[in-house]
Design a protein around this nucleic acid. Structure first.
Length: 434
RNA sequence: GCGGGCGUAGCUCAGACGGUAAGAGCGUCAGGCUGUGGCCCUGAAGGUCGCGGGUUCGAAUCCCGCCGCUCGCCCCA
């Protein structure tokens, strides 16, 4: 069969059989966030383009070549300059925008929120990389305490560990703040060093050298790697406050027994990051190995017009969590589709079956019946496929005796139950067996 | 944007130096058991062999183009 339409490139349908695992991941995430005192927030799927230009950065790949534009379509809608809408390419800026817009940062000294949302980036799809993927993430805004960095990392650690995605390595770095004697000083030192090797840098990096020199650090080109190996590291140029902050983050993680690796080349591709940056990478994941990434963004709120307010957070790719679970050989959760199936063995019993069907559903029991007028054998097979624990059989015999035959599919036992008591006794059976 | 691999039934895949038949397993449906699931057995439905063109007496098989999927570069979750 040739289907007329397929899901757009880089998108995936999440089918009924997949849902149990998605729910497991999402609910585990919600549970950990709640334990840590984070509240859920939901923001629109599209936002003003300026929001991302301002925060993610004009020179970032996301802004330069990965955004999906949203615009009214059709002859009645000429393209307006003001309507520059973009499908959300990352989670932090929209949340910051919403908190500012509704004054939540005035109502609480510290605002801690989490989100689960689809993210859109126009990229070439490959293993672990989609054009629409889903991220769960947290943002903690209002304190520059290193213990908040520790909390966010610990939350990511607890979530991934308990959801069956363990085996990751936490990469940690500090890229300093914007004070003159911190990142700017490092930036200069880095540029000076790289300039002395400019001829041997790859084409991209020769350009990055002036637009975004830190990005040269995580270039994968071999020639660049060898140069970067001896490049100055940001941790050696931190100002006193940043140095102190970073030491405290490390101490806190040590205290909690959360292992990490210092990685001086970790810089991340979004402009709003300051100080702490981290990535949870998984060795079983292939080329796209980051499952969770984030850091501190002390300048973000101010950039969006708020009072200077520090913050820290992470984003975690749900599809990649699922890939890790698979690599870790975690079993896929499977739910029975219904508890009870009503099988009709004689046309005369159809009315009684109809009433019983709705009586059970309204009593809170997941109940299904046959809509294809199939043989009792076929109905039994179908009941089995649906995972029904009990099958109720209604036929001439049952009508005559005013009973219902109840079959326990697991125990292969069956008995007769008075019609008027069937709902209550099934209720008891279903709650006991689940 | 640039490379590599692959497109045969709903799914997983056989079949390929061009030639006697479009196949298997799973799944679906029906029957064996005319009121009873899982196991087993029998049968059935389901395919323009991604699309278009070319070579040839003859193409799922060879060639070209396109489309799609996939993996990698890049970038990131």
């Amino acid at each position: 069969m040739t289907v007329k339409f397929r899901a757009p490139r880089g998108t995936k349908d999440i089918l009924p059989d997949d849902i149990a695992e998605w729910r497991l991941v999402e609910e585990t995430f919600r549970q950990w966030c709640t334990r840590y005192g984070y509240r859920e927030i939901r923001t629109p799927t599209f936002e003003d383009m300026g929001l991302f230009e301002r925060t993610v950065g004009e020179t970032s790949d996301i802004v330069q070549k990965q955004m999906f534009a949203v615009m009214p379509y059709g002859s009645r809608h000429p393209i307006g300059e003001e309507e520059r809408w973009i499908l959300r390419p990352e989670g932090t800026a929209p949340v910051a925008r919403a908190l500012l817009e509704h004054g939540l940062l005035q109502q609480f000294p510290i605002v801690k929120v989490f989100y689960i949302a689809p993210i859109f980036r126009y990229e070439r799809p490959q293993a672990g990389r989609l054009r629409q993927h889903h991220q769960c993430g947290v943002e903690a805004i209002g304190s520059s305490s290193p213990l908040l960095d520790v909390e966010v990392i610990a939350l990511g650690f607890d979530f991934l560990t308990s959801v069956g995605a363990d085996g990751f390595v936490i990469n940690l770095n500090s890229i300093g703040c914007l004070n003159e004697n911190c990142r700017p000083r490092y930036r200069q030192a880095l540029i000076a060093y790289l300039q002395s090797h400019e001829q041997r840098l790859c084409e991209d990096c020769q350009r990055r050298l002036y637009t975004n020199p830190l990005r040269v650090l995580d270039c994968k080109e071999e020639s660049c790697q060898t140069i970067v190996k001896d490049a100055p590291m940001s941790v050696d140029f931190l100002c006193d406050e940043c140095r102190e902050h970073f030491d405290a983050v490390r101490k806190g993680l040590d205290e909690l027994g959360i292992a990490y690796e210092l990685n001086g080349r970790l810089v991340r591709g979004l402009d709003y990051y300051t100080r702490t940056v981290f990535e949870f990478v998984h060795p079983k994941l292939g080329a796209q190995s980051t499952v969770l990434g984030g850091g501190r963004y002390d300048g973000l709120i101010e950039e969006l017009g708020g009072n200077p307010t520090p913050g820290v957070g992470f984003g975690c790719g749900i599809e990649r969590v699922l890939l890790v679970r698979e690599a870790n050989a975690q079993p896929k959760p499977k739910d029975a589709i219904v508890d009870v199936f009503i099988a009709v063995a004689a046309d005369a019993a159809k009315d009684a079956a109809l009433k019983l069907l709705y009586e059970l559903r309204r009593a809170g029991i997941r109940t299904e019946c046959d809509y294809l007028d199939r043989s009792l054998k076929a109905q039994m097979r179908y009941a089995d496929k649906l995972g029904a624990r009990f099958v109720l059989i209604l036929g001439d015999e049952e009508l005559r005796e005013n009973v219902v035959t109840v079959r326990d599919m697991q125990k292969s036992e069956q008995w007769k139950e008075p019609s008027d008591k069937i709902a209550s006794s099934l209720m008891a059976l279903v709650t006991n067996s689940s």
